[in-house]
Amino acid sequence: NAVYGPYFENDAYFLAKVDTLAMLPDSVKARHILLRVTTQEELAGAQKLADSLKTVIEKGADFSVLALQYSTDQGSAVNGGDLGWFGRGQMVKPFEDAAFNNAKNEVSIAISQFGIHVVQTTDKGKPTLQAQVAFLVHNVVPSTRTEQEIYGEASKFASANNTSEKFNAAIVAEKLNKRVASVRETDLNIVGLENARILVRAAYEANVGDVLKTSQESPIFELGNNFVIAVLTKATEEGEATFEDAKTRVELAVLKQKKAEMLVKKAAGAAEGKTDLYSVANALGTDVKNAANVDFNGFSIPGLGMEPALVGTVTSMDANKLSRPVEGNNGVYIAMVTSVSQSPDPGVKNEQTRLAQSMFYRATSQAVESQRKKAEITDKRAKFY
């Protein structure tokens, strides 16, 4: 019942109260069968299948075989649905709640944005004291008067700077922060802006140098809590890139490559003679980060993104040894494997089932793409949605 606050964070005032204290596991080990659902019509059928799978598993059916046969999560299906150990906050909430609330070896069903999960918790970590905290939140939002004042300033700026030359000059003169975004015609989002689709469509209906306008011919876009005034600075035509466009991309790629080479050399020097990852991190002035459940069949690492070179390196390493510096897509890494768990041999029959399912998905996708190309379809959805 202890209360903390009020405190200000993320444009809101918070008052926190400890609701309950309980001994709960800090991590669990679980496996799942994912039934992907894309339409409302598929939901009822998938729910019935999930109920049937839960029933046969509780009667003693082999979870691993069923995962290979039915799960659409190919990354875990090859391991019998096993996801390994994970803590709070690492999985989507409905799945996490099911895994942590299950008793050991209990099977339950959870529905998330990915589909329907048949979840079995196979082990639980050591219980630790954990708190459930209730929050009272008061959002700080601008008043109507504030919104009108800011809109008035935006309107005045747009009226006085109705060309790209005036727009850029005013930004320098008024010391404003200009942001730049590159968008494709079908993009739905622009980083940092809410509901930015209307801005993307306006860009593709304008000419280079134009101040973008809404469908009501207003130069001010109301996107979430932002009033946005934008100018189209450049348009790249479909087809072969010009020399200047290609030159810019090549220069960036070469700079990235040279920087990676420099960082690899620096990391190798820092790691020389060391066997402790924390000592290497200290020498480089960086931190050690942990990643769990790195699997050879996956391409990404939690918190790092798509890093196939790093995945390939760590899955072929022995435990408690430093890797060489690895040049990845988003950085240069030195890794140490802290533990290794061998996946059970799925057997020839199960591997055949997995490969057949994978080939079926691939063949279906390629068939649809082949038909689309043969029909010479021009996708104009971006002009209407």
Rank of each mutant, 00 (worst) to 15 (best):
V37F: 14
A30P: 01
E9K: 12
T248S: 09
K213T: 04
K258W: 09
L255Q: 13
Q371A: 00
S339K: 04
D287E: 13
P25Q: 10
D187W: 13
G152A: 08
K17C: 07
V254T: 14
N79I: 02
V231T: 01
A170I: 01
K156A: 04
V137T: 07
K156E: 09
S300L: 05
E261W: 10
A154N: 09
N290G: 06
G60S: 05
Q257I: 09
T121E: 02
L252P: 03
G81S: 05
L43K: 06
L277R: 01
A319V: 06
G328E: 01
G303K: 02
V56A: 11
K266S: 14
E194Y: 15
V348H: 08
Y385K: 05
E376N: 11
E369A: 00
A356S: 07
T233L: 07
P219N: 08
K259E: 15
N290Q: 10
P302V: 11
R362Q: 01
S279R: 02
L21D: 12
V231G: 00
E194Q: 14
N105F: 15
F95L: 04
R88D: 11
E185F: 09
V28G: 06
S27M: 03
G5L: 03
P308E: 10
Y7W: 03
A67N: 02
F135S: 11
V337M: 15
N320P: 03
Q130M: 12
A12V: 04
G303T: 01
E41W: 13
R145Y: 01
F296E: 08
V92A: 09
E217G: 11
T39V: 00
N282W: 12
N329C: 11
E307W: 10
V254I: 15
L35H: 00
E185M: 04
A22M: 09
V337C: 15
S27F: 04
P219G: 13
T186R: 12
D345P: 05
E238F: 14
A335V: 04
V254C: 10
R354Q: 14
Y361R: 00
E376W: 09
A22P: 02
D318G: 15
